[in-house]
């Protein structure tokens, strides 16, 4: 460690080990903490000190450089082969989220037929994915799923692209889901509630479809 310098306004502040002498009584750590707090509550002494402002700008540059550094390293490594993704995905059990078993009727006393809640959720997602300009998020099956004939409400979160009609897309989604459920399950659907939780600003892929007015 170098011994503390005598304050010298002519020298660059960052070369000095006497920070308060160069930063109007503040330390670099204090300024860093101030930045971490989002400069809230505002500190008038820091905000009006040119020396502090220069140091804060420098700290922000460093922070930005740090985040770019990691991103650069990630981008550089990204071009390599895909085996790491495969390794991860292989470790995931496909039907790990099967949820409740929903009974299906059968005349035989020996028969125990079920469709899993997870399979029904997958079905709802797949049906929702066929509706253009919309993407399904969470899907919940509310009701006594394990009791045959019990009324079930399907609650679906979805995001849509900006400029698309919310009611029209919600209705399309309801119809697609209702059709899929009646084709594959014996559920008594009381309602399909659609919540539009997010509106996409832009769509990144082909813009060949016309926006709904």
């Amino acid at each position: 460690m170098t011994p503390p310098n005598i304050p010298d306004p002519a020298s660059d502040w960052y070369l000095s080990d006497n920070e308060p002498g160069h930063l109007d009584g503040h330390t670099l750590e204090e300024l860093s903490d101030y930045l971490d707090r989002g400069r809230v509550p505002a500190d008038l002494l820091i905000d009006t000190s040119p020396a502090c402002q220069i140091a804060l700008a420098s700290l922000e540059r460093l922070r930005f450089a740090m985040s770019s550094l990691l991103q650069d390293e990630a981008d550089r490594a990204d071009v390599r082969d895909d085996s790491w993704v495969t390794a991860i995905m292989d470790g995931i059990v496909r039907d790990a989220r099967s949820g409740r078993d929903i009974p299906l009727e059968h005349p035989s006393a020996h028969a125990r037929l079920f469709v899993t809640e997870g399979a029904v959720r997958g079905l709802v997602r797949a049906a929702g994915d066929t509706v253009a300009n919309l993407i399904v998020g969470r899907c919940r099956l509310d009701g006594e799923l394990t009791t045959p004939g019990a009324p079930i409400t399907i609650a679906i979160n979805a995001s849509i692209y900006r400029g698309k009609s919310i009611p029209a897309l919600a209705e399309q989604l309801r119809q697609a889901v209702a059709a899929a459920l009646s084709a594959h399950t014996e559920l008594t659907i009381k309602a399909i509630d659609v919540t539009i939780q997010n509106i996409y600003l832009t769509r990144h892929d082909s813009e060949n479809e016309q926006d709904t007015p």
Binding site: G99, G118, R121, G122, R125, I135, G137, R138, C139, Q197
Partner: peptide, 13 residues
């Protein structure tokens, strides 16, 4: 899709 949608779908399996 945004992370929220992806997480929700992941949670659903």
């Amino acid at each position: 899709a945004d992370d929220r949608t992806l997480v929700e779908r992941t949670v659903d399996g």
